[in-house]
């Protein structure tokens, strides 16, 4: 834990991180906000309605969140680049953040790991790390923004995802690229195709010019500077090009699915 604490940045509530972790468990406490929310929502937004009827604030909030997905997709400008920073602006130490402690983070063997490619692609061959390392790489120094509010500037180096999608003959008219991760709880996250094709969306193999350490997602992370941090999956093991919305680890628990920045 001492090591953990050092890696956290000031301003990040540690107890909250732990609480967030607990919240990932499929228990009923997380759903309490619905009960609290339902009565308040009914009282405040629908004054005059019967508070005890079947109206669900949760349902209304879900619908608005879907609406917000649409609004964000509309205002997403594929040519707008996330601001970049000089190396001197990099946050040190860059925070480790997950719903588990660092010593519980996935430990991936780079020698046996393969990136599985599925779905609407011409070439479904799996890729070894050595093969991926051969692809041209670019570096970006951008701001990582967490859904919790804190942010940190980091340096990520890797292959633009759009180059890789082209290489494997992906159908870029498909709606999503869906990533799955090595986390034992099966972390996954969908990325809308326009964002997947954004010039700064990257298959990341290095952090700060060093091979991506375990803390930041070895062997591969998807760096998306136009999305909140939870939509930047780490320890990626497969990607699927698909028209189906397959949900995501945090998305399914209520975080807005588009979560663009």
């Amino acid at each position: 834990m001492a090591r953990m604490r050092k890696l956290l940045i000031p301003g990040v509530d540690k107890t909250l991180l732990v609480r967030d972790a607990i919240k990932t468990m499929p228990d009923l406490t997380r759903r309490r906000f619905i009960t609290g929310g339902a009565s308040l929502g009914a009282l405040t937004l629908l004054t005059g309605c019967d508070v005890t009827d079947s109206f669900s604030a949760e349902e209304m909030l879900k619908q608005v969140s879907k609406f917000n997905d649409g609004v964000q997709a509309l205002i997403f400008n594929p040519n707008a680049m996330a601001p970049t920073f000089p190396e001197s602006a990099i946050t040190k130490p860059f925070p480790f953040n997950a719903y588990y402690d660092l010593d519980e983070a996935p430990e991936v063997d780079g020698k046996t790991w393969k990136l599985e490619v599925r779905g609407l692609v011409e070439n479904k061959k799996s890729w070894t790390l050595d093969e991926l390392y051969q692809l041209p790489q670019v570096k970006q120094v951008t701001r990582h923004i967490c859904v919790e509010g804190w942010s940190a500037i980091g340096s990520w180096t890797g292959t633009p995802l759009r180059d890789f999608l082209k290489l494997i003959g992906a159908d870029t008219r498909a709606k999503y690229v869906w990533f799955q991760c090595a986390d034992k709880d099966g972390y996954n996250s969908p990325l809308d195709m326009p964002t997947a094709l954004h010039a700064q969306t990257q298959m990341t193999f290095k952090f700060g010019d060093e091979i991506l350490p375990r803390a930041y997602g070895f062997p591969m992370k998807i760096r998306v500077p136009t999305k909140l941090g939870f939509k930047n999956p780490k320890y990626v093991i497969s990607m699927e090009v698909t028209n189906d919305y397959k949900g995501g680890f945090w998305e399914d628990q209520g975080y807005n699915s588009f979560s663009g920045s």
Binding site: D13, R19, D20, R30, G37, L40, L61, V147, G254, Y255
Partner: peptide, 27 residues
């Protein structure tokens, strides 16, 4: 979820139950 200052607001006066709920209400 990520206080700017050395205090947090009491749970009883916040809306949403946890971060995702708060964000849904806010947005």
């Amino acid at each position: 979820a990520s206080p700017l200052f050395g205090f947090t607001f009491p749970r009883s006066i916040t809306l949403g139950g946890w971060l995702a709920g708060g964000l849904l209400w806010h947005f």
